[in-house]
Nucleic acid binder design. Structure first.
Lengths: 162, 162
DNA sequence: CGCAATTATATTGTGCACAATTTATTTGTG
DNA sequence: CACAAATAAATTGTGCACAATATAATTGCG
């Protein structure tokens, strides 16, 4: 699981240079992206993480909190209050599962379903702001998904070792 | 400033597919990266954003809050409490500028300076977890910096229009 | 000089993120 | 059936992020 780590021959000064840290480019680009979404989602009273949850539900309605969390990589500590806000907006319902009383099923309301049509134009609008062509975006998407997969698998390996 | 937005001929179902949203890959990869850093920084009592601020100060000591914020793309609302925590850790000092009493100068303590040597190995350790080669990391870094630049310039354009 | 506009930082309030813990329920094993 | 282990959500506490506002100091212009 552990890759061979080739220690680079970069000079000492350069190693901690902020602009050479891919982690920082990732971090700052992600925040910039969220800021681009903010004014586009604000008319609907939505935040970016709330929008992500809705994307999942529009693909597959009626999911448990856990299943939702696995899709968006968030846990109940983040999702529970977020889902309560979506419930307050009347976009979703939260219902205890009848058979397994531990589960809570998240389902779209008709308002939540209809919202899909109102936001469907947003991704195209955002992609305009990226300065990337569609193929470039697709490539970057694949690179980031692969990166995420490696990071998460190493995270899980660390946790399993404990 | 506005790019021409070629509307893709993707089918309606696919447009809002979570796994095709580069924004989400960015968002989730960034959080995964922060989680990789967490156990590496925890021994020093540092969070990832605090580490970023230290990276800036190790490059150039004695900066105002604003100047720091421009480097890490964070504002005083985020930085003021973060810097107070670094001060409490005795890693930095916060001093009002004598000539311009509005500015606060952030400076490393000797402890803060010496910490650099303790964390200098971390980037190499992280890069092992990315599953990427060094050239791949460098390329991704450049792509993300370019993306961030486009997003931020469009954000500023929106703000200027108000 | 006087004072309005600007600038720098701090504060407030909302909403994530996440580790750690708690509560409630179900499942597996004797 | 009993009950320990496992599972699913919710809760708690800390630390970002950021918009909006407040506070304080400086600058520029008449």
């Amino acid at each position: 699981m552990q890759n061979e780590c080739v220690t680079s021959d970069l000079n000492e000064q350069s190693i901690l240079n902020l602009d050479e840290q891919m982690c920082f480019a990732l971090y700052s680009a992600s925040h910039a992206m969220t800021k681009i979404y903010k004014p586009l989602l604000a008319p609907f009273g939505l935040t970016y993480p709330q929008y992500l949850v809705l994307l999942v539900l529009w693909q597959k309605d009626q999911m448990t909190v856990n299943a939702l969390g696995e899709r968006v990589f968030l846990d109940s500590g983040t999702l529970t209050p977020l889902l309560k806000r979506l419930e307050k907006l009347a976009l979703i319902t939260r219902k205890r599962e009848a058979i397994d009383g531990r589960e809570v099923i998240i389902a779209l309301t008709s308002l939540g379903q209809s919202l899909r049509g109102d936001v469907v134009h947003i991704p195209a609008s955002v992609s305009c702001n990226t300065g990337c062509t569609l193929p470039e975006i697709k490539l970057l998407n694949q690179q980031l998904i692969a990166l995420r997969a490696h990071l998460n698998s190493n995270l899980n390996a660390v946790k399993a070792a404990r």
